[in-house]
Design a protein around this nucleic acid. Structure first.
Lengths: 173, 173
DNA sequence: ACAATCGATTGCTCGGTACAACTATGCACC
DNA sequence: GGTGCATAGTTGTACCGAGCAATCGATTGT
């Protein structure tokens, strides 16, 4: 019988579940908790921030991965092209991103972070990193490293799973 | 000499950063990636789902932690009372949650999941767990366990940090 | 008994996103 | 070399979720 259940798992766990179920359950609950909390933070921080917060993700992508075209960018961040289009427009307007013609295809344009964009992103990144560093101030670095490693693996697995068409209710069994 | 930088870290990393910065940076990037992806999944799954997805979090809370009053629930999930109020109203309407008078305070009411609510939540939970189990099908259980453990720690740290008033730009230095 | 208080709800607004229809421009095929 | 056509991107519209602020209602406690 599920010895592990009583100790960590909350109520509401049906009997007859195996350990794998329990762990999945805990992952799920942690995910919800984490996301809800981060979302909340975002709202709080949103006030003191000039630029569209959502657009930072795009800026980050451009800084880190280099120029993209708009559609590719959308795919990279799992967003709709229309969403990205508007956000990019905003970023261009404030001068953090510039449109350059794509040599490979005349009707496309490559988006690239400007110097100012780099600067702004770097500042933001630093802020965020300070915050994270702060939150995990009492962690040893091995654990932080492990967290990254596992999150990376998990997200990657998620990406693959979701790309392979299994959007949820599929079962191959 | 940031030996670790060249290997895993993306471009755009300024020189002179220490390893701690890099790890924080990677945590941040992973967080963004993960959240964005999950958000996306939510949209996709939202279609095939009758109930307000956002409300499931509340239902979960009620099932797992037992009855709450509305405001307490809001705080528990880091949401605004108004938001919770509406979501609860919806849950009550479909009969997943019931309002019971709070013996301790006449003007409050305790929210509790009904039997039907339990049932629906259990089904959903199972689905989600199957999905997570699927995504991590090639993980060994120790790693899944570790993921939970680290996420839990991280989220808890976040909660504490955010409760201790440090909402972001504060510095005690 | 009455005022202050506290719990919950409702009005309004906003940010972020998606879907779908549309535009336009270069591509590629004939 | 012209023309249909695919493709890149934009815009129109709608929706969802959330938050703030004001309000309603009722209780409690003086």
């Amino acid at each position: 019988m599920n010895a592990a259940v009583g100790e960590r798992s909350p109520l509401g766990v049906p009997e007859g579940v195996d350990e794998r179920w329990v762990t999945s359950d805990r992952i799920g609950l942690q995910l919800i908790r984490l996301i809800r909390l981060i979302e909340r933070q975002r709202v709080i921080k949103a006030k003191k921030d000039g630029v569209e917060r959502a657009a930072y993700v795009l800026l980050a992508r451009l800084v880190i991965d280099g120029p993209h075209r708009s559609n590719a960018l959308a795919e990279a961040v799992h967003s709709d092209p229309s969403t990205v289009s508007r956000q990019i427009a905003a970023l261009v307007k404030v001068g953090y991103v510039e449109r350059r013609p794509d040599p490979a295809d005349g009707r496309a344009c490559l988006l690239a972070a400007t110097d100012e964009g780099h600067r702004v992103f770097a500042a933001n990144r630093d802020l965020r990193n300070r915050w994270i560093s702060d939150v995990t101030s009492d962690w040893d670095d091995a654990d932080r490293e492990r967290l990254v490693e596992l999150m990376d693996r998990f997200t990657t697995a998620l990406e693959n799973h979701h790309e392979s068409g299994a959007t949820g209710a599929e079962e191959d069994r």
